[in-house]
Amino acid sequence: MFSSIAKSSTILSRSSFRLFLRAQSTNALTKTQLPFAYSPTGPASIKYTTQHEWLATHSDKTTFLGITKYAADALGDATYIELPEIDTEVEAGDSISSVESVKSASEIYFPIKGTVVEVNENLIENPQLINIDPMGSGWIAKIKIDDEKDLVSKDLLELEQYENYLKNHTEE
């Protein structure tokens, strides 16, 4: 299931391709949607986890959380998204949500400390938004993080690193 994708990520690793990749990768944020367009200049930082979550952090510490295109494709049609309660204080590594698809309940983690300020209520009626636009309108939660310094961690990957991770960790 997880092995079927990542075909779009065959041309990575060479730095000259990086800009090209940023424009082409299906795991890049959708620029027209709120997670990117929340601030006029776009997010200050976009990070990925090896558990296939993305975090888009804006300059006011507002961070959008979602799952990558790779994960959404691997999971298949989403039937239900369990959303966190607003005002929940999240500890680093807490499971704050889950996505159900074809009988799988997949836990969604938030890797740093923060407080949930908003959830994407569109997902309640339209869980398939996760499949249609996981990197944009299918965002899961908006979380105010405690400290931007927490974003500097070897476990939080840049897009290139994430694509490389996919290349090395999925069976063809």
Binding site: K103, S106, E107
Partner: peptide, 10 residues
């Protein structure tokens, strides 16, 4: 029948 759980850090 079957069901699945994915998470718990990999």
């Amino acid at each position: 029948g079957s069901a699945f759980k994915i998470g718990a850090r990999g």
